[in-house]
Structure formats: C-alpha cells, structure tokens
Amino acid sequence: MNAFRLVGDLCHLAAIVLLLLKIWKSRSVAGLSGKSQILFGLVFVTRYLDLVTNFVSPYNTIMKVFFLSSSIATVYLIYTKFKATYDGNHDTFRMEFLLIPCALLAIVVNHEFSPMEILWTFSIYLEAVAILPQLFMISKTGEAETITSHYLFALGSYRGLYIMNWLYRYYYENNFDVIAVVAGIVQTVLYCDFFYLYITKVLQGKKLQLPA
C-alpha cells in the first residue's frame, strides 16, 4: 500500500458516499445515470468474485464489501425507491455498446485465459468506460447538480491517483500490470473534459453548465 493508492481508495469511497448522500438528502436521483450505476455494480461483482477465496487484508475485504453493497444499493435506490425521480428519457446511452466490446476485448487481451482472470479483465475494461452514460446524460441535459459534479470529481480523481500508484509500484516494487494501467489512463482521460469544467466553473461557485 502507498499514499497514492490509499488516497485514491478514499476518493473512491468519498464519491460513493457523496452519491448516496445526494440521493438520500434530496430524496431524488434526478440527473443520475442509472446505466452507469448498473455498470459500476457489474464492475464490482466481476472484479470481487475472489472476495471470499483470496484474502489480502482486512482493509481490502472491508472496502470490497462496502463497494459491492453500496453500488447495489445505489442501483436499487435509482430503479425502485426513487424511480419516480429517475430521468430515463435522458439516460439513453446504449450499455451494450460498452458491454460487448469490453467482453470481447477481455477474451482476446488478458493475462491468462481462465474464467476468473477474464472476468477480472472485463471488470477493468468496463470500469474505464462505465462513466460514459453519466457523462452522456450530462451532455444531453446540459447541466449537473453541484453535488453530482463533486461526485464525478472524486470518482475521476481516484483512478488518476491510481496511475500515480502504478508509477510508484513500477519504480519501487517492480510491479506493473499493463492492462490495469492502460485502462486506468483511458478512464482518467475520459474525465478530462469534465475536470476542466469542474475547475473553471464549480470551483468558482458556478453551477456545472455545459456550453449550449
């Protein structure tokens, strides 16, 4: 464990808590893409299959359990409890356009052709693009609630910090996983446009509005 990865995980945790707070306090899922949340749930389910078979540390297990349960809870809140406030008309990104290419790529490009490894690789590829429905929805509605943009900033920062973690592990632990690194870079790059808007607008106290 290094500071980059720890802070990265805490950003990830903060993002998920921010999202649940937004939903619970505003009693609404307006502006949230249920599809992205379904994809994130799938990412955790396919990545943490080794939750009970491969014990790494108490921290690792606790975080995995929290990520799994919170992402499933978020999907539940969006599609059942606060369904009335779900804006399905703007959440129209086709998930199959992400699921199928990630699945095919995971079968072709992986470290080992075994079910667990392919599922882990699929989750890495899927996580890189899982935010696209949410970013697409914001581009359609042209705006995002301030707390939703904080959520996105924390979520985008987490994988950016992981890139620094991978640099650290490469130089100091001689540890390098090209699949995780390449997907992590793609994932972080997808947020760059949003990061620019967040820093120039939200941090100036303005609402996140996309230029019409």
């Binding site: 990830h12 080794d50 540890n175």
Partner: peptide
C-alpha cells in the same frame, strides 16, 4: 522479472 498481478488492489 516484472510481477504483473495487481490483485491486491481494489
């Protein structure tokens, strides 16, 4: 040799 597995990460 480079160790590849990053399975100790979340």
């Amino acid at each position: 040799t480079l160790k590849q597995k990053s399975k100790d990460e979340l």
